Amino acid sequence: MKHIDVMRAFNDDPDTDAVIMIGEIGGPDEAEAARWVKDNMKKPVVGFIAGVTAPPGKRMGHAGALISGGADTADAKLAIMEECGFKVTRNPSEMGRILKSLL
């Protein structure tokens, strides 16, 4: 299931009040979902990207995500999320507190 499909499902679910989207370095999926959220989501979203400290060219995580140094870095994805209305954090321990503040 694509990230956009998941966000659409959460948006359409009457029992969902807010969403935390956790992504990883590498690939365009999180940026595509963030743009969908900007245009469609009616609920608050908190964003986090794992791999903030990963250097370019380094394989990280279970999926072996490879940062090419462009829009698929953690910093680039967090910036896109923020531009699309997400409240973002670089610290996963802050996700719950930030989400609570949005409700």
Rank of each mutant, 00 (worst) to 15 (best):
1 M>G: 12
2 K>P: 11
4 I>W: 00
5 D>Q: 11
6 V>Y: 04
6 V>D: 03
6 V>T: 02
6 V>G: 02
7 M>T: 05
8 R>S: 14
11 N>A: 02
11 N>I: 03
11 N>H: 00
12 D>M: 09
12 D>P: 08
14 P>K: 05
15 D>G: 11
15 D>V: 03
16 T>G: 07
16 T>R: 08
16 T>H: 05
17 D>M: 04
18 A>H: 00
19 V>T: 15
20 I>D: 10
21 M>C: 12
21 M>G: 07
21 M>I: 00
25 I>P: 10
27 G>D: 13
27 G>P: 11
28 P>N: 14
28 P>C: 04
30 E>T: 02
30 E>K: 14
31 A>L: 03
32 E>P: 02
33 A>Q: 10
33 A>G: 10
33 A>K: 13
36 W>H: 09
36 W>G: 04
37 V>H: 08
37 V>F: 12
38 K>D: 07
40 N>D: 13
40 N>W: 00
40 N>C: 12
41 M>E: 11
41 M>I: 01
41 M>Q: 08
41 M>H: 08
41 M>G: 07
43 K>M: 03
44 P>A: 03
44 P>L: 13
46 V>F: 13
47 G>F: 00
47 G>H: 02
54 A>S: 11
57 G>W: 13
57 G>F: 09
61 G>M: 04
61 G>F: 00
61 G>P: 05
63 A>D: 15
64 G>H: 06
64 G>T: 08
64 G>D: 04
64 G>F: 06
64 G>Q: 12
64 G>R: 03
65 A>F: 15
65 A>G: 14
67 I>G: 12
70 G>C: 14
70 G>I: 10
72 D>A: 09
72 D>F: 11
72 D>H: 08
73 T>D: 06
74 A>E: 00
75 D>G: 13
76 A>Q: 03
76 A>P: 04
76 A>I: 11
79 A>M: 01
79 A>W: 05
79 A>I: 13
80 I>R: 02
81 M>K: 15
82 E>N: 05
82 E>S: 09
87 K>Q: 14
87 K>C: 10
88 V>A: 00
88 V>I: 03
88 V>L: 10
89 T>S: 13
89 T>F: 11
89 T>K: 03
91 N>V: 03
92 P>G: 13
93 S>P: 01
94 E>C: 12
96 G>A: 15
96 G>E: 14
96 G>R: 11
96 G>F: 05
97 R>G: 09
100 K>P: 03
101 S>F: 11
102 L>Y: 09
